[in-house]
């Protein structure tokens, strides 16, 4: 089919998706389309279902009803077809999940070789290029435990990219990192976004969300409450719930002890890009 038409088919599409954990309605009538090259950032309070939503896209979580399509193809329930579609959607986890018994290089070449049957020489060449791109090529022969969290997460991104995915899912990629390592990971994600990768990102980094997102999705209690441009969302949230959520960020900043203020302000400066009055209470 011609390119224009293919471009109109969303890379990721969720239609009337519902999911329950027992009585808890974790995903309540979710409809979401992510177009080619688009970066969609999901934010929301803990327990709002944003991680679950992210994980349903490659079926690490099953859904109770509704449809999930990747590039127009409905997600199969099991088997080789499911594995094939999963291989087209890269995923980066909060806890990195690098294969602990393999070296960094082996982590990156493993899936291309075993899933895509890429010859080893080519897989290694591509892997080294990717590792260089994320700035950890000198660590290629180490094992994950020898790397810092930030380095591990960058390797995880390289590992996902090595499969040449159509889209990438990021499930709170910086939530397990020390503050000083957050930026090195966000920078890599930003670069990948700028190269035109389709992305669905769950994050608590408001500043980053505002910079990188084409669209912000705000979730609460399993529902999508708002869907708008970053400017619109951060400057004039439509719902009371979103206003409350965003205001909590400023409250938590202002309550930090004096000593922590400097570093937090640096880190959180302009977080939300809005009414943050991050002055320590006297």
């Amino acid at each position: 089919m011609p390119d224009e038409i293919r471009d109109e088919i969303p890379v990721i599409e969720l239609e009337n998706v519902e999911k329950y954990f027992g009585d808890l309605h974790v995903l309540d009538n979710i409809n979401l389309r992510v177009k080619k090259g688009e970066v969609v950032v999901i934010i929301g309070p803990s327990g709002s279902g944003k991680s679950t939503l992210c994980r349903t896209v490659n079926r690490l979580e099953t859904i109770d009803s509704g449809k999930i399509r990747i590039a127009g193809e409905e997600m199969p329930a099991e088997g080789k077809e499911l594995a094939r579609i999963r291989s087209e959607v890269g995923m980066v986890f909060q806890s990195f999940n690098l294969f602990a018994h393999k070296t960094i290089l082996e982590n990156v070449i493993m899936a291309p070789m075993s899933v895509k049957k890429t010859p080893k020489a080519q897989a290694v060449k591509e892997a080294m290029e990717l590792l260089k791109r994320v700035g950890v090529e000198s660590q290629a022969s180490k094992v994950p435990a020898q790397l810092s969290g930030g380095q591990q997460q960058r390797v995880a991104i390289a590992r996902a990219l090595a499969m040449h995915p159509r889209a990438m899912l990021f499930d709170e990629p910086t939530s397990a990192l020390d503050p000083e390592m957050i930026n090195e990971v966000l920078d890599v994600i930003r670069e990948v976004a700028e190269e035109g990768m389709t992305m669905l990102i769950v994050t608590h980094e408001m500043n980053f969300a505002r910079q990188v997102a084409d669209r912000i999705i705000f979730m609460d209690q399993g529902r999508i409450l708002e869907e708008s441009t970053p400017e619109a969302f951060f400057e004039a949230p439509k719902t009371e719930r979103a206003r409350e959520f965003l205001s909590k960020y400023s409250v938590s900043t202002s309550r930090l002890p004096r000593g922590a203020y400097e570093s937090v302000e640096k880190h959180a400066s302009g977080v939300l890009g809005m009414r943050i009055s991050a002055t320590p209470e006297a």
Binding site: N58, L60, A83, R84, R86, S87, E88, V89, G90, M91, F93, S95, F96, N97, L98, F99, A100, M110, A111, V115, K116, A156, R159, A160, M163, L169
Partner: peptide
């Protein structure tokens, strides 16, 4: 997470 990462790679 090890399993999930491997599954997500296909």
């Amino acid at each position: 997470g090890q399993r999930e990462a491997a599954l997500s790679l296909g």
